[in-house]
Nucleic acid binder design. Structure first.
Lengths: 216, 216, 216, 216
DNA sequence: CATGAATGAGACTTCATTCAT
DNA sequence: TATGAATGAAGTCTCATTCAT
């Protein structure tokens, strides 16, 4: 009869995480507007009322989800880059690779789709997302390209558009995974790893200084 | 005072266009779910009921908007490619360039954002969009790459992932324009033309066979 | 090219009948509230606007339908009764028989269902229907019963409730025909003629004076 | 001033009954289509939304009303018949009498009017009503007639049409009560008890074997 | 803290009726 | 006369949020 359950205090501490996890999953699946708050609560195993005990509105819940999930991804990338010692070409390949693995592993990458789609109905989210996500990601990639140039591995190129070009397929794959990729549709098969490899390959061909000093 | 109105019949002929225009603009701004049908009607200068005279539901209206706007873009690209006579590198640059101009010119590109965001709540849209938009666009880019290979201009590469990589920045820019780009936010400035140029440049470096036998 | 059509004046004269016929059929099928005025117009081969040229509202159209169809039925019954010469038992059998044939032949009988169902939402219809339909029908049946009593054929009975009892199965059959009878349902089969015969048989057994002085 | 309200849980338990009562009354008064769900809610003392907490649609609410009210009536009749010990003539009189009292007492009988009127717009209701109401009622009356025949009290007659004829006036009265009978109209006064008595009297005269073997 | 019954603003859609042509 | 495009009130149902328990 005595079902063992965590003590009250313990529950209180884990609730937010349960709610954020449930919300992440549902927001990514259905979008912000189409996700009902009761669904989130029940997916987290609590009642509607409890959700509102922790977050004053669906909007605040959404912001909390974004905050918790995305910033983390970015900083993890930063650490990997800082610690890397090999060639910049290898660094770039590795960065795309491990980042994709992380993004692929959780639903966090799906938030980009949701933010992208609903940021215009959510003006306060825009600056937050720009500061916390977009700018750091840019800085990360620009830093890598700069490293390649500084070390004489890459041709001198404009950082901003090149960083865009480097990130674009990654973002594209993230978006795809949580949108068309989740529909039972017969489109052109998207193989993320192959796409990233093709992309890295082309990029590096394009970025690198000629490997022989010969051709003039 | 006597404002002269167009005659009835004339109005009937232009209503669908008025409604589609208003709907395009609002769907792109707010998304499908968040756009109220009455808003569309009133933006088109008619009443709620009139909208339903022309489209039986918000969903059908949306499909009509997609059909009218996107399919057109794709076929225009196809024609430009078919008619082109120069080198494949130039063709690729041109294709990205004119396509961006078209996409940039209307809100049509913004539909991709909306579909991306809401396709999972809209299952019937998925196949339609895959067939009408995604597949044709792929065929277009794969065709161009194949042309380059056939003519000995490009290295032999895998078509599908390369087509993805080629389109990715375009899509990225389209999405950006109608999402963060429309918010009054201070992020890294995205210069579409520069991004596309940087991208094309890198891509071509990566795709092209070594240009001379000379550099050795 | 010159499709021959009736002249204008001619059209004007037949429109009301076309509209009333279409309306009768649709009101009986769907009821008053559920019948859309456009359906009536289009079943009559005219446009919505034309309907309103002849009847100022759906309600007035309905009243016109009732007026035209029901009063006719009653008076026909009256004539048949007045002309009859045989025994009252035969008269009653004949009355039920020919009345059923008339009612069965057109949709007019179905109006009873509609009036029954919607008279409470239509207060002005109530008195009209009582005066034009219910009272005359009662008078008719009461007259027949009185005739039987007067001629010594029937036991002396109370006219009003006996008239009710006589009409009840007829009404029941009319209602059934246009309601459950029109649904693809497997209920107890209702055979109108058999029901009326069984009913007449029982009624006459009950009404008639003992035919012999014998049984005591 | 402080009106003491029942506690929450208690309210939840009584809501369905409050809603069904309100719905019965309004559906019988106005019909299904013409009854607005908000009216039902407010007649039950709750808000629009609360109604939908208990019944997922107006249609389901209606079915629940039918289920609760009519099925009950039928089974009560069945019990009364099973328990009866006297002559079949007396049984028939009693059955009509107590049934009328029950029907007259609540609005339940009025549902027949509503179903009759709207079943054609409500196809799924047809079979439900046939199975739950019409067939059981037939079985009940056919059983009584069979009992009379088996016990040598009644002439051998065809069960189905006779059952129809027996029920017809009852149904007629039920319909009348909730239709014209509820309108402030001066028609022929319908005295239900007298009508049923007249009817039973005629029926029994018709059904019963001649009490003497004499008349030929 | 937690619950879930209750609310009511608001969304989509329908349709009787009008009126310019 | 006849048309049918247009209107907008009204109806069904949803769901974010509140609050008594």
């Amino acid at each position: 009869m005595a079902s063992t359950r965590p003590p009250r205090q313990r529950l209180k501490d884990i609730r937010p995480q349960q709610l954020l996890d449930a919300a992440l999953s549902l927001f990514v699946e259905k979008g912000f507007a189409a996700t009902r708050s009761e669904e989130v609560a029940s997916a987290a195993g609590v009642s509607k009322g409890t959700l509102y005990l922790y977050y004053p509105s669906k909007e605040e819940l959404f912001k909390a989800v974004v905050r918790q999930n995305i910033s983390k991804l970015i900083s993890q990338g930063g650490e990997a880059v800082a610690a890397f010692e090999g060639s910049t070409a290898e660094l770039l390949v590795m960065l795309l690779d491990i980042w994709w693995d992380r993004v692929d592993d959780s639903d966090a990458g799906g938030l980009h789709k949701v933010v992208l789609a609903e940021v215009r109905n959510f003006p306060e989210l825009a600056q937050f997302y720009a500061d916390e996500v977009i700018l750091p990601a840019h800085r990360l990639f620009e830093g890598v390209v700069q490293r390649g140039i500084d070390r004489g591995e890459f041709r001198p190129v404009e950082l901003v558009p090149v960083a865009h070009a480097l990130m674009a397929p990654m973002i594209f794959l993230m978006l795809h995974k949580h949108s068309f990729g989740a529909c039972p549709v017969h489109g052109p098969d998207v193989d993320p790893k192959a796409t990233l490899r093709a992309h890295a390959d082309l990029m590096l061909h394009g970025l690198m200084r000629d490997r022989s000093g010969t051709h003039r």
